[in-house]
């Protein structure tokens, strides 16, 4: 169940909130309270944009317990635009050709559930950036 544990992580999981080091300016995700670059205390919250690109990826065919009904699913290391790497699933990629360097953006999705009476855990996944959707729509409208 671990409800308190998931509650503690909600800002990380739902809004991609990490930290920024006030000493050297490095952006940190996940939060670690001590700057990995300069070792200064770093407890100032920082909200990441959710934009990034695929740094490495894999399709999981043999999932751990709790993830069976998602399999096969794609996991990745995503290089966030602000610098850090984040480990996450890719979503909305059925039939997509995934490549290193591919632009992705954060979305909120179901991570797992603990059976029919357990908690449903939501969190970040990343999906391919939908190519210039809004500007194309505007252009179409003006025709």
């Amino acid at each position: 169940m671990e409800i308190a544990r998931h509650w503690r992580l909600q800002r990380h999981r739902y809004a991609l909130v990490g930290e920024v080091c006030n000493h050297c300016g490095v952006k940190i995700f996940p939060a670690r309270d001590v700057c990995p670059e300069c070792n200064a205390p770093a407890k100032t919250p920082y909200t990441f944009s959710g934009k990034g690109e695929v740094y490495s990826y894999s399709t999981v065919h043999h999932p751990p317990e709790g993830f069976e009904h998602f399999a096969p699913y794609v996991v990745a290391l995503v290089r966030l635009a602000e610098g850090p790497l984040v480990a996450a699933q890719l979503t909305d990629v059925e039939g997509e050709k995934i490549e290193i360097g591919m632009p992705v953006e954060m979305v909120t999705r179901k991570l797992r559930d603990d059976g029919s009476r357990g908690t449903i855990v939501y969190g970040y996944k990343f999906r391919p950036v939908i190519a210039s959707g809004t500007s194309a729509d505007v252009k179409d409208a003006s025709v």
């Binding site: 480990a87 996450a88 991570l111 969190g123």
Partner: peptide
Amino acid sequence: ADFEAQNGLS
């Protein structure tokens, strides 16, 4: 556990 395993990374 919180940032690798919980995201489904075996």
